[in-house]
Amino acid sequence: MAMLTTCVVVLFGLSLGVGPAEVNWRDSFAALVDDSYGPLTLVMREIRLPRALLAAVIGAGLGLAGAALQGYLRNPLAEPGLIGVSAAAALGAVVALNTGLAAAMLFGLPLAALAGALVAVFLVLLLAGPQGGSLTLILAGIAISAMASALTSLVLNLSPNPFAASEIVFWMMGSLADRSLVHLAIALPFVGGGAVILLRLGRGLDALTLGEDAAQTMGINLSRLRLLLVLGTASIVGGATAVAGAIGFIGLVVPHILRPFVGGQPSRLLWASALGGAVMLQLADLAVRLILPDRDLKLGVVTALVGAPLFLHLIYKTRRGQV
């Protein structure tokens, strides 16, 4: 835990210090707090600070949502991106942008994304069910992802927007480039609110380790747990997707890596995955900026490149019953 926290802070510093404007570290950090640096202050406060903050907040949210979903479904393959929740949130966001809803009301964009995420989480729970095996879960996820992506493409396809193609790329792949503090203000209440809900579910998720019947007789109200889980996950993914597009695999990779370190206990995995998610997304965002700084590498591409092989490995292990 302490190590993870340190990592978050160090990476946050790194993230602030890295960018296309070639300035030394001392000046960068001085500019952050001191107005006298002119344009550098602007760069630090308006470009790098929001980006670093968003990476930490969204990463933490996605890691947490993944850990909570896995705990509830008792399935290490559950993940908001993989089971279509992120794609549905992206669909909500795209619809909001294209119908003018986003411009019409303050929280129009994140609320629409949240609605999309809600529908998707609900559908997954309905289709895969809490005792549903890995296969039903993944099939449900594929179906919902495919549907949401197709509808997103359709909306953009039909829109008069000349940049539709690049918009599709943004919403499908996710990115933190050129975000401002306004974006942070949009995402933070939703991610934070969802996190508060999910972090309180640890006890119920622990009890669920023993199955639904045992959990219920240990005093856990399952329908309340399910409702809170759906709301919390949707709120986090909705808020995150509204500003950063669909970023996959954080919620899959992070809990998987950290599970052995917390002794497998779902409640302890929640906090660890939040910190771990922040670390991983900051790392990915740094990689995006350092590897190909002038080619606008998408964040979701990097997380998928890391996550997809691990996903295959997990499926292989699940099939052999070793997870």
């Binding site: 019947d213 045992a214 007789t217 497998g264 206990q265 779902p266």
Partner: peptide, 13 residues
């Protein structure tokens, strides 16, 4: 209550 299905979902000590 100890159900018939002996479910232990995670590798907990």
């Amino acid at each position: 209550w100890m159900p018939q299905a002996r479910e232990i979902a995670w590798p907990i000590a």
